[in-house]
Design a protein around this nucleic acid. Structure first.
Lengths: 321, 321
DNA sequence: CTGAAAGCGCTTACAG
DNA sequence: CTGAAAGCGCTTACAG
């Protein structure tokens, strides 16, 4: 592999001039520029990015930390990030953590080692406090109590409350909810909204009616059977994710339970599957969130101050409520 | 940020010794090792990976080229690759191409610049011939006419044929097929298998009955309506992907078409959605393919010869045929 | 517009 | 077991 020095020799200029050509600097005579370009062609030159990174001190690559690429929510988010990154000529590396803290820490150590210029946490197991001990540009795709991170988020409490109100308007009082997990900021706010709503309509809170660890279509099917076994049955379930809603709806249909008459389902995401199945859902602009996440992280990398953006949500009426 | 030189100073040793400690070399006296380790702790040392890469000449990172992260087939494949890569301490970067050749070429140029040590093509638009002009370790997740790439693949022709035979056994003669796209090796082999099967049962080939550009649940819904408009209707459709099958099945049910009595559906993938919906499908071990892809690429990077592996497939009977 | 030189931070023969 | 020195391939003040 030819290097900059060989190019300089062949073109009869200094390596400085070659570097200038490489970096589109002004102040290179047209004549020399041409000679350099020709030399590069002749020698099939390709720049060694590692040398560039070492010299410049950054890598032009960001890392994305997420539990699982296969969950539609995260692949959608990742796709949004990937589009924005590509548009800015920034590389992406993915850290799939399965919510294991060691893997999240691995990603952070990579940031420290400058493997990446910054990190987007799509979701995380590590606490905000622990995260604060690491330096380097970070962006969280969720709200944070600490005002020390840039964040892009959905107002989950409001959105959940909005969903609950909608169910209440439609006459439901016995409402269960289903979350991806109980931990995490998002769930925290959702549960808060849930309790508030129940209090307002004078229903007692039943711990049991918060179902958790639900992420996939299969989990949704299980949710149906859980619902079916409860002696007192909720008439509606607010589900935090389209996949689970899909499983729930499909199993309900398969078992002859009428939706929404016997069981209403209100979902979150508005991904393709909810559209296909006609599930009423709350759109949370996942892909847009990915784009914004990238842009906010870029700002942090450039040294701009912390920013906290909040996206809009929108309830889409279909046929399950 | 402290560097190796400062560590050496503080520990009172040479930078060579520090490097040895860093790389777990033998032949470092225990006493100096301890001194170095202490100095690193005191100065909060972190290695600069760019310098390591420049020195060593490789980056310990591979690239994955795929059209879209959001399509379940690819996110499944990517998850398999990611697991295997993490287990080997190798980094992953993702090139989402949307089947645009320029983006594929961008990935190849990154390989040339040593941004990555190798590239896995999950699917591609670029021709094998063009690909051959680029050097560097490559791995294709599909068969190739050129014997010059390492590949991991499913015997698509056999598998497709197997599916067709199964439909024929079940009494179907009017069979349509639905592919992700017409281009590409996989489709080539599938169409070949289709024509063979038709010839054997004495059916005439109808160009029209090869539906293409079908990837999502929505595409599956459209496929239903296409089917519904044909004057002569196939009694079975062999669909190359679970998402499309799901859309097709759901729309058929919604429109009151009996599956499998009026329309049989045989799918490919065996992803979660086909299980949930009870779709008869051919399992193609997507995640396993990801793992194997990584391992084969690793071998190429280490300079081992080209290898071509083929995975097994398996028909899973459920309720749509 | 141009170039010599120092610097980025590590690794690795080589000599001891 | 240890270290001085060259090398990886680029960028960037600085001086002209």
């Amino acid at each position: 592999m030819a290097n900059i020095k060989e190019i300089a020799n062949k073109a009869g200029v200094s390596i400085t001039t070659v570097s200038r050509v490489l970096n589109d600097h002004p102040y290179v005579s047209e004549e020399k520029r041409v000679r350099v370009l020709e030399a590069m062609k002749a020698l099939e030159y390709t720049r060694n990015v590692h040398a560039v990174h070492l010299s410049k001190g950054f890598s032009n690559m960001i890392g994305v930390v997420l539990p699982s690429i296969r969950l539609p929510y995260f692949s959608e988010l990742l796709a949004g990030i990937a589009d924005a990154a590509f548009a800015s000529g920034v590389h992406l590396t993915v850290y799939q953590t399965n919510y294991e803290i060691e893997k999240e820490i691995f990603a952070l150590s990579q940031l420290k080692q400058r493997q990446v210029d910054g990190l987007i946490f799509c979701s995380k197991a590590i606490s905000d406090e622990e995260l604060l001990e690491w330096k380097g540009p970070l962006l969280l795709c969720q709200n944070s109590n600490e005002g020390l991170f840039s964040t892009i988020s959905i107002p989950h409490q409001d959105a959940f409350r909005h969903g609950l109100n909608y169910l209440i308007e439609k006459g439901h009082k016995k409402i269960a909810i289903c979350l991806a997990r109980k931990k995490g900021m998002n769930s925290h706010f959702r549960i808060k909204a849930y309790k508030e709503a129940l209090a307002e309509i004078g229903e007692t809170f039943v711990e049991n009616w918060i179902v958790e660890k639900a992420l996939t279509i299969c989990d949704g099917k299980e949710l149906y059977h859980k619902w079916n076994k409860w002696k007192e049955k909720p008439t509606a379930i607010l589900v935090a994710n389209d996949q689970v809603s899909a499983g729930l709806l499909l199993e309900a249909k398969a078992q002859g339970t009428a939706v929404p008459d016997e069981l209403a389902i209100l979902s979150f995401d508005n991904h393709e599957i909810s559209q296909s199945l006609g599930i009423t859902t709350i759109d949370i602009q996942t892909k847009e969130m990915g784009k914004q996440a990238f842009m906010l992280l870029e700002k942090r990398i450039k040294g701009q101050p912390i920013e906290r953006k909040v996206l809009e949500y929108r309830l889409i009426e279909r046929s399950t409520v």
